[in-house]
Design a protein around this nucleic acid. Sequence first.
DNA 1: TCTGGGGTCCTTTTCCTT
DNA 2: TCTGAAGGAAAAGGACCC
Length: 440
Amino acid sequence: MDAFYASVELLRYPQLKGLPVVIGGGRRQDDALLARHPNTPLERIPVSAFPVLGQYTGRGVITTATYAARAFGVGSAMGLMKAAKLCPQAILLPVDFEQYRHYSRAFKAVVTDIAPQMEDRGVDEVYIDFTHVPGGQREGGRVLARLIQKGIWDATGLTCSIGVAPNKLLAKMASEFNKPQGITVLQAEELADRVWPLPVRKVNGIGPKAEAKLAAHGIHTLGELAARERAWLVTHFGNSHGAWLHDAAWGRDDRPVVTESEPVSMSRETTFERDLHAVRDRAELGAILTALCDKLATDLQRKGYQGRTVGIKLRYGNFKVVTRDHTMTTHSADATTLRRVAGLCLKRVDLTPPLRLLGVRVGGLARTDPATPLNALAMPSAGQRPMPHHSSHPQAHKTPHQTPRQTPPHPVPDLFDLPLSGPPGGAEPPTAGLPPVDAG
DNA sequence: TCTGGGGTCCTTTTCCTT
DNA sequence: TCTGAAGGAAAAGGACCC
């Protein structure tokens, strides 16, 4: 298979091109901006009027940053306060998913017009199998890549970097060689020269943890990784991960370009403006949980799905995360049902420490209307790991059994109805707190 | 100093049934 | 009636990606 990996840079305002800009954090700075410049389109508001990072106070992280901002050491997932120290003059824009979705659809339409075998990798990235695209092999794929780049520019004004290689693993790596508007053709025989000198972290699927573990064994580059025996890697990293690491270092990847997929789960979560306490902030937490369930139910219904497993996620003030879930006997997309089951899950966790984040998730999805065409409504599979499927996995490809066990393990009275002083009897975990679950 | 939100997949632990 | 083993599914946690 021949593969492209294409990623586009999403930046809205032409007057900000070339400047350090970060996106993230605060909500609705646009509104304040427009209030100060009535009747002026955002695209015409002068650069000097935009809020800068140095003025920002509060929680949040950077979603993305322009290359000019990255030159200051600012990057994705960095706290805004830290970024403000590195580059206080950077312009800070709010996240606007409506716009991203619009431009995302537009650029993908350009791609599929030219090369229909496209795999969606999120809002700004795709894989393309161009093996059977007419003219796809000219200049090793470079001609087709230029055509796609120009098409995206003409339709959206967005720049795009493209990697061309024999498989997805190498195409993704190649796309990073020449950002933001380059085309890199990487051939299998160039592995030693162009890939092995790279740090292991450049492989899509080696994150900070794997990087640290490899470093502890003195492995920093892909060349050093490739030099290890496969058996040695299997011994130290397990059967599947060790073998995968070995394949990755040797540029081997036989995953196909997947053009359609079904969502596995949907979720909603929110980080609070300040840490909340289950008892003191009981009403607020209850309202947040209800709102999350409402949104999630709306998401499910809009996309035509219902789910059987409902779960909650809590992040404590110390960043420790706990999850609880419960599988129901039937599927549902009903907000009241989600709220009730999420409430039951919440009773099974320790609600004593300060809480930073609350989330609700639904898995075990099934289509509400099976006649809906496959993938017509599915989300892009953004977080999919590049690992191959391991059929040895004990839970792989099994049909769910019909009698899920009942939770919670110890019968708990409705703690959500308890007085604020805490649970009676002393036998229950310290879970006093949130308002009553809505009566079904 | 501070660390979002929405996903997928894998591994390990726990629980249930036979 | 009790016990233990085995196997499968659910639950929990974690790594990773955009």
